[in-house]
């Protein structure tokens, strides 16, 4: 079994993993980081979106072994304990979530979007969320939550 070593939310982990183990299952089952969800089996829903070396990826589309040596951020590590990232705050303020299942993936995807495009238009936000499915909100308030975070971050700068 391959041995991997990687940094997750600032902490280094070393494990022997089965070759076929998906990164998402490594995060959920081995590390107990269950904020990253599995919503499909075709890499289509985006519920498992995390950041790998600063970029949003779907953690179901990568083997744990492929993530060897990388640095990963999950929803649990997006903001320091007790604080909220502007996006987390935006989702709460604008009612951008209902059942909460797609939310971590949405937030991680949106964080990547805002890092490239700090002031996206409505259309750019909608296109940026192309890889993530939400069944509850109709996306209306997710768009507003991201606009809220963009505005808040702009003020902070």
């Amino acid at each position: 079994m391959p041995k991997i070593s990687l940094t997750v939310n600032g902490k280094t982990h070393t494990h022997e993993v089965e070759g076929r183990l998906l990164l998402v299952h490594y995060l959920r089952d081995t590390l107990g980081l269950t904020g990253t969800h599995v919503g499909c089996d075709t890499s289509s829903c985006g519920a498992c979106t995390i950041h790998l070396d600063g970029k949003a990826i779907k953690s179901c589309s990568l083997l744990a072994a492929q993530a060897d040596g990388s640095s990963i951020t999950t929803i649990e590590g997006l903001a320091p304990d007790g604080e909220l990232h502007p996006l987390q705050e935006g989702f709460k303020e604008e009612h951008g979530l209902q059942c909460g299942f797609c939310t971590p993936g949405m937030i991680m995807c949106a964080a990547d979007l805002l890092s490239h495009n700090p002031d996206p238009s409505e259309q750019e936000i909608r296109e940026g969320l192309e890889g993530n499915i939400c069944r509850c909100t109709g996306y209306h308030n997710i768009v507003r939550a991201i606009q809220y975070a963009a505005q808040k971050s702009a003020v902070a700068v």
């Binding site: 959920r28 089952d29 107990g32 980081l33 269950t34 904020g35 990253t36 969800h37 599995v38 999950t74 929803i75 649990e76 903001a79 909220l84 987390q88 989702f91 709460k92 303020e93 009612h95 979530l97 909460g100 299942f101 939310t103 971590p104 937030i107």
Partner: peptide, 23 residues
């Protein structure tokens, strides 16, 4: 009033507890 949801905090921080999360 549009009171913000009290349940949101656990969901936006990845602390929701769905059945598959239970070990």
């Amino acid at each position: 009033k549009s009171v913000k949801r009290v349940e949101d905090k656990r969901f936006i921080t990845g602390k929701g507890r769905y059945t598959d999360d239970i070990v």
